[in-house]
Amino acid sequence: ETGKELVLALYDYQEKSPREVTMKKGDILTLLNSTNKDWWKVEVNDRQGFVPAAYVKKL
Results as ranks from 00 to 15, higher is better:
2 T>M: 13
38 D>R: 13
24 K>Y: 10
59 L>T: 06
51 V>W: 00
40 W>G: 00
48 Q>D: 07
52 P>C: 04
56 V>D: 01
14 Q>I: 14
38 D>E: 12
7 V>S: 03
1 E>K: 12
47 R>T: 07
22 T>F: 04
28 I>K: 06
5 E>R: 13
42 V>T: 01
45 N>A: 13
10 L>Q: 04
7 V>Q: 01
55 Y>F: 13
37 K>I: 10
49 G>A: 03
49 G>I: 05
3 G>K: 14
33 N>H: 07
43 E>F: 06
56 V>H: 01
32 L>C: 07
21 V>C: 09
9 A>V: 10
12 D>E: 05
53 A>Y: 02
15 E>L: 06
21 V>S: 02
42 V>H: 00
57 K>T: 13
33 N>I: 08
30 T>L: 14
44 V>S: 15
15 E>N: 06
3 G>S: 12
11 Y>K: 13
25 K>R: 10
48 Q>P: 05
51 V>H: 00
59 L>K: 04
53 A>W: 01
17 S>I: 05
26 G>T: 01
32 L>E: 02
7 V>L: 12
30 T>F: 12
11 Y>F: 13
56 V>C: 14
19 R>L: 13
41 K>D: 04
14 Q>L: 13
47 R>F: 05
8 L>E: 12
7 V>C: 14
26 G>Q: 02
47 R>Y: 05
35 T>M: 09
54 A>I: 10
40 W>H: 02
26 G>W: 05
14 Q>K: 12
12 D>H: 05
52 P>I: 02
13 Y>D: 00
21 V>A: 04
19 R>K: 11
19 R>A: 12
52 P>T: 02
34 S>H: 08
27 D>M: 15
22 T>H: 04
6 L>D: 04
25 K>T: 07
56 V>W: 01
10 L>F: 04
15 E>G: 15
24 K>L: 08
27 D>Q: 15
13 Y>F: 08
40 W>F: 08
48 Q>K: 10
1 E>I: 13
42 V>E: 00
18 P>N: 11
58 K>N: 08
2 T>P: 12
39 W>K: 02
17 S>E: 09
37 K>F: 07
1 E>M: 09
36 N>Q: 09
59 L>V: 11
9 A>W: 02
17 S>Y: 06
19 R>P: 05
37 K>L: 10
10 L>C: 09
12 D>F: 04
23 M>I: 15
17 S>K: 07
25 K>L: 05
3 G>N: 13
28 I>R: 05
14 Q>S: 12
51 V>Q: 00
32 L>P: 00
1 E>L: 08
10 L>G: 02
3 G>I: 13
38 D>C: 14
32 L>G: 01
33 N>D: 15
24 K>I: 08
5 E>Q: 14
3 G>P: 13
13 Y>A: 01
58 K>P: 10
49 G>E: 01
43 E>G: 08
26 G>K: 02
40 W>A: 04
30 T>I: 15
51 V>Y: 01
50 F>V: 07
37 K>C: 10
46 D>N: 14
42 V>G: 00
25 K>N: 04
15 E>K: 13
14 Q>E: 15
41 K>N: 07
48 Q>R: 10
18 P>D: 13
55 Y>S: 13
9 A>R: 00
27 D>N: 06
2 T>L: 12
53 A>C: 06
2 T>Y: 12
37 K>E: 11
10 L>P: 00
28 I>D: 00
54 A>L: 10
21 V>Q: 03
44 V>C: 11
6 L>M: 09
18 P>R: 09
6 L>S: 07
11 Y>W: 10
54 A>Y: 09
33 N>R: 06
34 S>E: 14
18 P>C: 10
14 Q>D: 14
43 E>D: 07
38 D>T: 13
8 L>V: 15
58 K>L: 14
39 W>F: 07
52 P>H: 02
25 K>I: 06
22 T>N: 06
21 V>I: 13
59 L>I: 14
34 S>T: 10
23 M>Q: 02
58 K>S: 09
7 V>P: 00
44 V>K: 15
24 K>E: 06
38 D>I: 14
39 W>H: 03
4 K>Y: 12
29 L>V: 07
32 L>Q: 03
5 E>L: 11
31 L>N: 01
1 E>C: 15
8 L>A: 06
27 D>V: 04
33 N>A: 10
58 K>Q: 09
50 F>S: 03
5 E>C: 15
22 T>I: 03
34 S>F: 06
43 E>R: 09
13 Y>P: 01
33 N>E: 14
2 T>I: 14
48 Q>H: 09
32 L>Y: 04
52 P>A: 02
59 L>S: 05
35 T>F: 09
52 P>D: 02
42 V>R: 00
54 A>M: 11
28 I>H: 05
42 V>L: 04
17 S>R: 08
49 G>S: 02
31 L>A: 02
16 K>D: 06
13 Y>K: 00
56 V>K: 00
44 V>E: 04
53 A>D: 02
25 K>H: 06
20 E>A: 06
57 K>A: 12
20 E>P: 04
13 Y>V: 01
36 N>G: 10
59 L>A: 05
27 D>H: 05
